[in-house]
Amino acid sequence: MLHEGVRTCSGCGASLIAKLVLKAARKPVVVVSATGCLEVATSILPYTSWKVPWIHNAFENAAATASGVEAAYKALAKKGLIKEVPDIVVLAGDGGTYDIGFQSLSGALERGHDFLYVLYDNEAYMNTGIQRSGGTPRYAWTTTCPAGEVLKGKLEAKKPIALIVAEHRIPYVATASPSEPHDLIRKVRRGLEVEGPAFLHVICPCPRGWRFDPSLSVEVARLAVKTCFFPLWECRWEDDDMVLELTGPSKLIAEVPELKLPVEAYLAIQGRFAHLFRPKRMEPLIRQIQADVDANWKLLLRRAGMA
């Protein structure tokens, strides 16, 4: 559903994710994009890469825009002016979701508009040249949290966006990785099927911003899953209770804990964490990241009833 000629960087996770999401759709789809890499790289006039109807409004309002699109189709269908309400998919990055777009997302979730919101999380403002966001993980280098003599990258932890969204008690929330495309496609379909809002948080490796060779994009995402840095799960609400299930490799790791790789395997292949290893190894910082990962993983295991 995307034309060739997308002007994303070589090895871009975002265009890969967009392609997979659209591949999963079975009904007509209308896409709403937040400002960001994907939006710009697919719509530089006079060209477009979108084979489906597509709208970009601004940075912080993709969810509000989608609310309006959805309300419009509902109203037009009520009047008999359109036959069927299409599926509505939002594609937004971490800046447009964790930070500037959070209010509009939260409002739309509370109101219960029927759309699938896909967050492609490349963990920084990549479109403006790699600046920190609420999605940037601890100790990662960005141009606004550089690794200096005193400060070693971002000091704060990554905001647990998917769990925050899940607490809105919407019908479906999941995480996904391009390294598990079938799992991702299944989750997109589930998200489109449910009545009301669904949210899919996808890890989106960025060769340019994370500093790795473009051929490694899928491998980096795979390591994020294997180290439990980015576990795969899905959740729904039943009888006022959150029902969270681990999926794919993450489920396997929960059952066979020895399969969980140390986070270093994930960190060491990315230039954005290079300062943790060179010129000298920063053991306490690496340990802190491992502790973050372990704590988040434990929390998920508890929520999944697998602790």
Partner: peptide, 28 residues
């Protein structure tokens, strides 16, 4: 009225939703 009334969470979002609705071919 058969209008879809969206009691939205800010003015910024109100106009953003109107943009989405009008782009979808509706009166907003």
């Amino acid at each position: 009225v058969r209008t879809e009334f969206v009691a939205i969470e800010s003015e910024h979002s109100a106009l953003s939703a109107c943009v989405g609705a009008a782009a979808a071919g509706a009166r907003a």
